[in-house]
């Protein structure tokens, strides 16, 4: 039971990364390999504000989200927008460039030392029915729920949100209906940045340390979740996240450390290979109704 809850909480954070990947993929057919690294880079901002300037966690967190959004927007404006007609694989390589760039900057400035970010709220937690859930886990659950619902509502009920969905269905037709293609693209990448920062902020208390590439596991989890969910389906990404979190927790709990350390990462590889073999469109992919 404890394992299941831990899995669900980790999974909900994977779902945030998966949502970012699915949003970008749905809108642009590009796989954003920098989805977790953007937030990792800006987490140093939180560390700097909170430990050097002793500002409250929430200020550092908001600064990190703002910075990550800015990275998304700048990347969109300087790189993505110039590659509107480029092959999608080439654009995907550009996101590998962004991934490497953020990682390289982290390595250049922060390599070798482990940084600690203060916890978002007081340590401790509450025990419900024999299952211990810490306050930061509660926070993660709450924030992920709010964000997922908020994003869903935004996409469904606002004009701009509908335009984003229409553009994902068919960018040219959406443009012919008068929706602003450039702003939709900017929104997508800005949102991807914000989701990245949020996911990293929420998983940091679980990982405990901040070092370059420390959240690679988060990216792998999110990527697997997005693939399980179907890459272009937002509900799929969410469900995929939870599923991957639970499977990961179960594997971790049942495989001895010595045979395969960090067996959860290997489990992800097996899941991905399995999904590609058996159901490459994922759980909810392609059912979302796209007429080719």
């Amino acid at each position: 039971m404890q394992v299941l809850v831990v899995g669900l909480i980790a999974g909900s954070i994977y779902a945030l990364i998966a949502l970012g990947i699915a949003l970008v993929y749905k809108a642009t057919r590009v796989l954003n390999f920098a989805q977790a690294e953007i937030g990792t880079g800006t987490l140093y901002f939180t560390w700097w504000l909170c430990t050097r300037h002793h500002l409250p966690w929430i200020v550092g967190a908001l600064a990190s989200i703002a910075a990550a959004t800015a990275i998304g927007l700048v990347f969109e404006a300087l790189v993505i927008r110039k590659m509107m007609t480029a092959p999608r694989v080439t654009v995907t390589v550009a996101t590998i460039g962004l991934f490497s760039f953020v990682l390289a900057l982290e390595l250049a400035f922060f390599a070798g030392t482990i940084y600690l970010v203060p916890p978002p709220i007081h340590p401790g937690g509450v025990r419900i029915g024999g299952v211990f859930v810490s306050w930061s886990q509660w926070l993660a659950l709450g924030v992920v729920g709010l964000v997922a619902l908020g994003l869903a509502a935004f996409l469904r009920y606002t004009d701009f949100g509908l335009a984003v969905q229409a553009s994902a269905d068919d960018p040219v037709a959406a443009q012919l209906m008068g929706t602003p293609r450039a702003r939709i693209s900017a929104f997508t990448w800005g949102m991807a940045g914000a989701l990245s920062a949020l996911a990293v902020l929420l998983i940091e208390p679980t990982v405990g340390v901040l070092s370059p590439g420390a959240f690679n596991g988060l990216f792998i989890g999110g990527l697997t979740a997005a693939l399980v969910g179907g890459l272009n389906s937002l509900p799929g990404a969410f469900i995929g996240g939870l599923a991957v979190g639970v499977v990961e927790a179960e594997v971790k709990a049942h495989l001895s450390f010595n045979v395969i350390p960090s067996s959860n990462v290997t489990a992800m590889l097996v899941i991905v290979l399995g999904v590609l073999l058996l159901r490459p469109q994922g759980l909810l992919g392609a059912t979302a109704g796209r007429r080719a």
């Binding site: 790189v79 460039g97 962004l98 760039f101 390289a104 900057l105």
Partner: peptide, 8 residues
């Protein structure tokens, strides 16, 4: 860092 920048 330079390499990553050049890649983009």
């Amino acid at each position: 860092v330079l390499g990553a920048f050049l890649l983009m």
